[in-house]
Simulated assay, not measured.
Amino acid sequence: MNSSPTPFFRLKASDLEHLLITIEKSLEVQTRTQFYLWAQGALQGFVPHEALWCAWGDVDAMRLKVQMFARGVINPRVESQMTNPTDGVLPRMVDDWLRGGRAPRLLSSEGGEQTGRRQLIGDLQRCGFDHVAAHGVREVQGDYGSFFVFAGLERQPDQRTAYLLELLMPHMHLALHRMRQREADESSTEMAPVTILSKREIQVLHWVRHGKTNFEISQILGISPPTVKNHVQKIMRKLNVNNRAQAVGKSATLRLVTHTDLQEVAR
């Protein structure tokens, strides 16, 4: 549950009617094309935006697949800056959302309550987005969660925006779930989520986090010290960091090493 629930916002009769239409239309979504048409139709009329990034998967472990729906052409460079699994804006927004108690995140170049998010706002501006709102849904009954980023809003998001996101999230989550379930049913070879580090690299990073030297790690894992050194160097390259301490810090932010990871690599 959110640590600070979004305040109630009284909607006008026209807003309530529009909300009902948007929810009804979401129930028709089964395919990617239908999701796109819904996002650019009923949903676009409710929360006007340039691009919508939809992420789903293990949100806490930051293992996500991402799909973008836009009303225009998005520069590939912007797409990469938004979704890069190590330095991308979207993973950092997910982390900000988790740290913020899973409350709607409202980001704007015009100010407001932006403590600790200046770098994030600056990167969004460099992507061409001055006003952004984001929210997600936590895992329910063992299913994956989801996270949505509305980029390029027409105006600075406010408490009304946050309240609307709270109302829309369950329906967006279910529409996205039906879309991906339909695609999974139609394909027997659905791709697994992208994994940044290999199982061996996760093992090495785990012991680096516990302050072990390369020699100590080699004794624990039964490999040579040069092999451990090679793994450490690969980890730092993949995470785009300069030393072991930075690798540990970034892995914590991106939640690359989890209890489940360690159970899997131990098998």
Rank of each mutant, 00 (worst) to 15 (best):
R99F: 00
P157G: 13
L165R: 02
P104G: 07
Q119D: 13
L106P: 03
A162C: 07
R99C: 02
S108W: 07
Y163I: 07
R155Q: 15
A133N: 08
R126L: 12
G100S: 03
V149Y: 08
V132H: 01
D87A: 11
G152T: 13
H171V: 06
A151P: 15
P157V: 09
L167R: 15
N84D: 15
P170I: 06
L90N: 04
L165Q: 05
G100L: 00
E154D: 15
Y163H: 12
V89I: 15
R102E: 06
L174N: 07
G145I: 04
R118M: 11
V149D: 03
A134H: 03
P170K: 09
M172T: 00
A175Q: 00
W97H: 00
Q141R: 10
L165E: 03
A133S: 12
H173D: 08
G128M: 11
L174R: 04
E79V: 14
G88N: 06
S108D: 14
M82F: 05
P157Q: 11
Q141I: 07
V140C: 04
E110I: 06
L106W: 05
L124R: 12
E110P: 03
D96G: 01
P91R: 01
P157T: 11
L153M: 15
N84V: 08
G100I: 02
E110V: 09
L124G: 13
W97G: 00
G145S: 06
E110G: 10
V78D: 03
H135T: 12
F129R: 03
M172G: 00
L174M: 10
R126T: 11
L98F: 03
R105Y: 02
R126F: 11
E154H: 13
R102W: 01
H173V: 00
M179L: 09
I121P: 09
P91K: 01
V94Q: 01
P170D: 06
P85V: 06
G88H: 07
R178A: 06
A175I: 00
M93L: 14
I121K: 07
T86S: 12
Y144G: 12
Q81G: 09
R180F: 04
F129Y: 15
Q114L: 12
L167P: 01
A133Q: 04
M93G: 04
Y163T: 05
I121N: 06
